[in-house]
């Protein structure tokens, strides 16, 4: 309860300080508009921004589904086959770690402007964290559970289906939570770099046009959408894992 109050007070205080700072002219309102100027801008950009958001979220959804399906399958395959894991893991870690922004120009050269590079780049961002997490989870499955299943005569198929897959559900859910933010990030970056539509493009053009209130409003909109998605996934996560307590 006190926590909740403190959170609300913090937000109000931050907005208040921001408002005062902007009103007093300590910062240039051209760059940092007061909250009271951002709110009307939110209404003004409404329709166009929502269309952009829908476009971005659509691409993100496609990239996300691909990332989860590919990431989980690759993670299970590489994680459960020892030779594959030992040979591939340095490459996987390397690809996970390098800044993917460096290949972005090349992707745009190859795939052009529009939806395809955005989805591809989104998958590039979403795939690796999911795969790395799942790979680790498969490797770390409790050996006793595997021994139990084998002693009870489990076939290889049954080992995967009844032991490995249920055991990695928490990691898959964790990866899905992480992955969605990465996918959205990838899509937004492409839209900023070489977009003709979508929220990344909208943000970029407001920034280039020095439309600070609109830019802040649009930023708030994307952030809210992203937080809502992650909270929804968290909720789903809690529902699906009663056995974890």
């Amino acid at each position: 309860m006190r926590v909740r109050i403190l959170q609300i007070v913090t937000v109000i205080a931050a907005l208040g300080v921001w408002e005062v700072v902007a009103r007093m002219g300590w910062v240039d309102p051209l760059f940092v508009p007061a909250p009271s100027a951002v709110a009307p801008a939110l209404l003004k950009i409404g329709r166009g921004a929502l269309a952009g958001l829908a476009d971005t979220l659509g691409k993100t959804a496609v990239a996300y589904v691909l990332s989860v399906v590919l990431g989980v399958s690759a993670g299970v395959a590489v994680g459960s086959i020892r030779l594959l894991r030992e040979v591939l893991s340095p490459y996987v870690i390397a690809f996970y770690g390098i800044p993917k922004i460096l290949v972005l120009p090349w992707i745009v050269l190859l795939l052009g402007y529009g939806t395809t590079p955005a989805v591809f780049y989104g998958v590039l961002h979403g795939f690796f964290p999911i795969m790395v997490l799942v790979m680790g989870a498969v490797r770390d499955v409790d050996r006793t559970l595997v021994a139990v299943a084998r002693s009870l005569g489990a076939t290889t198929w049954q080992l995967y289906w009844k032991v490995l897959l249920p055991a990695i559900v928490p990691s898959v859910l964790g990866g899905m939570r992480l992955g969605v933010v990465f996918c959205l990030l990838g899509v937004l970056v492409v839209e900023m770099f070489a977009g003709v539509r979508g929220m990344g493009h909208v943000l970029g053009s407001y920034a280039n046009g020095f439309q600070a209130p609109e830019l802040f409003a649009a930023t708030a909109l994307v952030s809210a959408a992203s937080i809502a998605i992650v909270l929804a996934l968290d909720h789903l996560n809690d529902r699906l894992s009663r056995w974890r307590g």
């Binding site: 006793t144 002693s151 249920p166 055991a167």
Partner: peptide
Amino acid sequence: VATVFQEAGLFPWR
């Protein structure tokens, strides 16, 4: 032959 292990080895999701 059925085996019981030292750690119970119960499947936590069952």
